[in-house]
């Protein structure tokens, strides 16, 4: 059990704006079967993880106080993700490595936090830091992941967004124009400035682990 001084709770109530705050950016996994959680589920999930962990969370003010969390662009339900980012803010400084361990004591292996960085309070948001999102698609009929590398243009993506509105029952069809050729797409990476530490080799490794029939 990790304990933090109880003082922040009182500060939080009376002089919230003058208190020191510490901001962290975390990267976590969202592997099977948690790829089926929606972005709303994920918000609720981290809210409860932070409360369970007894961390000195900064709450939003107002009618319905909730832990201050901010996420990157929502991952479509059904996409297995290696890289989900979220920012959290605390009233006390915690060593990033210790924070990672605390968080991981409250989540399952498939959702584990793989990276925690302390960032300045005025650091750009995840949305602003983000340059691109990379998806890996696996083609069922080819059976060989090495052979296929498909890039699709921005027009395709707009098409996908439209389809999303129309047809919700099947993830596969709205993420790519052509049907029947894909299994779950795999959200591999959000390119973050410098710190992501992700390369193509371990992507192939992960895909092999997750798609056992190849």
């Amino acid at each position: 059990m990790y304990s933090f001084s109880g003082m922040y709770e009182l500060w939080g109530l009376f002089i919230m704006n003058f208190t020191d705050r510490y901001r962290y950016r975390c990267r976590h996994l969202k592997l099977v079967p948690f790829h089926l959680l929606s972005q709303l589920d994920l918000t609720r999930f981290w809210d409860r993880v932070l409360r369970r962990a007894g961390l000195p969370i900064v709450f939003s003010q107002g009618f319905n106080p909730r832990p201050l969390l901010s996420f990157g662009p929502a991952t479509v339900t059904g996409v297995i993700s290696w890289t989900e980012y979220l920012d959290m803010t605390f009233y006390e400084f915690i060593e990033p490595e210790q924070l990672k361990n605390i968080l991981n004591s409250q989540v399952l292996e498939e959702m584990r936090v793989v990276e925690v960085n302390s960032i300045p309070l005025d650091f750009p948001s995840i949305m602003k830091s983000l340059i691109s999102v990379q998806y890996a698609f696996i083609f069922k009929d080819e059976g060989n992941i090495g052979n296929h590398q498909v890039l699709f243009s921005i027009e395709d993506i707009e098409e996908l967004e439209r389809k999303k509105m129309e047809k919700q029952e099947c993830m596969i069809s709205f993420l790519f124009k052509k049907k029947n050729i894909l299994l779950n797409p795999y959200k591999s990476l959000e390119f973050m400035p410098k710190e992501s530490g992700f390369n193509r080799e371990n992507l192939v490794e992960i895909i092999k682990q997750n798609y056992y029939w190849f």
């Binding site: 099977v32 079967p33 399952l108 029952e169 299994l183 779950n184």
Partner: peptide, 19 residues
């Protein structure tokens, strides 16, 4: 769990694995 459940609404109902 990986693929069939994607064809239906609210697949997270069926995964279990709760805390």
């Amino acid at each position: 769990f990986k693929n069939e459940l994607l064809k239906i609404t609210k697949p997270a109902r069926y995964i279990g694995e709760e805390w």
